[in-house]
C-alpha cells in the first residue's frame, strides 16, 4: 500500500495532447492524492475535457506520463485503469434502450463478472445513494435530466472505482435540477471519493474542492486551495475569468 500522504493516486507529468496540428494540452502536470477533490475550470476550449479524458484514455496522450494508482497508463494497462477510474459525462450518455437497472448492472455483470442478483443488489444500493431507487425499472427518457445524471453517477459507482471524473455534469441541466445533482456529488465528496470535477459551479467548488485548477489554452495557469486562489488570483487571466462567471 502506498502511503496516502506521499504517493499520489493520479500523477500526470508533462502530458501533451495533439489533435493533428493543434495542441490541446501543453506539458501539463498534476498530482491528485487519495481522497482529494479537484475542481477544474477555465474558458471553453481550454482543454479541461481533454485533461480528464486522457486520464481514462478516452483520448490517448502523445507525450508525458500518466500514472494511476502506481500503474503507468498505456494500451496494455488500459483495462486495469478503466477499472479504477469512473467517468460522468455532460450528456449523461445513458444507454437509451436499457432500463435504469440494466444500465447499472451491465458493467458489473459483463466486466466484473457479478451474478445477476449480486449486480442488482449493488445497483439498488447505489440507486438509493443517488436517491432514486423507485425509478429502477424506467427507461432513461422517462426521467428528468437531473434524475438521468444521478443514474449516470450511480452507474459509475456500481463499478466501485477509486477515482471519479466529472465532465461538466450539470451543464446540460435545467437550472432547477442542478442542485439535486450537486447534492449527490457533495455527499460523494464527503464519503471520501477521489474526484476530479470539471465545472463552473463555483459554489460547489468552494464547498468541496481541496484544489482548484484553472486552465487556459491547454495549460494549467493557476492551482491551489480554493480559499487562496479565489481571494488572491495570481494571474490576470484567472481574475478576468472569475469576474465573468461570477457576474454573468
Amino acid at each position: 500500500m502506498p502511503d496516502a500522504d506521499t504517493a499520489p493516486l493520479i500523477s500526470m507529468q508533462g502530458v501533451s495532447k495533439f489533435f493533428d496540428e493543434f495542441q490541446a494540452l501543453k506539458d501539463v502536470s498534476l498530482c491528485v492524492k487519495e481522497g482529494e477533490r479537484v475542481v477544474v475550470c477555465g474558458p471553453s476550449g481550454s482543454g479541461k475535457s481533454t485533461l480528464i479524458r486522457c486520464i481514462n484514455r478516452l483520448e490517448a496522450h502523445e507525450a508525458g506520463d500518466i500514472v494511476v494508482d502506481g500503474v503507468t497508463l498505456s494500451d496494455k494497462t488500459l483495462d486495469h485503469i478503466r477499472g479504477t477510474v469512473g467517468m460522468v459525462f455532460q450528456q449523461f450518455n445513458l444507454f437509451p434502450h436499457l432500463t435504469v437497472l440494466e444500465n447499472l448492472t451491465l458493467g458489473p455483470r459483463r466486466a466484473l463478472g457479478l451474478s445477476e442478483e449480486e449486480a442488482e443488489a449493488r445497483a439498488m444500493l447505489y440507486l438509493e445513494r443517488v436517491r432514486i431507487p423507485d425509478q429502477a425499472n424506467k427507461l432513461p427518457r422517462q426521467l428528468s435530466g437531473g434524475q438521468q445524471q444521478r443514474v449516470a453517477i450511480a452507474r459509475s459507482l456500481c463499478m466501485e472505482p477509486r477515482i471519479l471524473l466529472f465532465d461538466e455534469p450539470t451543464s446540460a441541466l435545467d437550472p432547477e435540477m442542478i442542485a439535486e445533482v450537486l447534492d449527490v456529488m457533495v455527499e460523494l465528496a464527503r464519503s471520501g471519493m477521489t474526484m476530479i470535477v470539471v465545472t463552473h459551479e463555483m459554489g460547489f467548488a468552494r464547498k468541496v474542492a481541496d484544489t482548484m485548477v484553472f486552465m487556459d489554452k491547454g495549460e494549467i495557469v493557476e492551482i491551489g486551495p480554493p480559499e487562496q486562489v479565489f481571494k488572491a488570483p495570481k494571474s490576470a487571466r484567472f481574475a478576468t475569468f472569475l469576474n465573468q462567471i461570477l457576474n454573468h
Binding site: D79, R82, C158
Partner: peptide, 20 residues
C-alpha cells in the same frame, strides 16, 4: 458518447457491440 460510456464501465469490444 455511447462508446465512451461503455468504455468507462470497462466493457470490451464484443460486449460494447452486443449490449450497447
Amino acid at each position: 458518447g455511447q462508446y465512451e460510456a461503455a468504455q468507462s464501465i470497462s466493457l470490451n469490444y464484443r460486449d460494447t457491440m452486443r449490449y450497447v
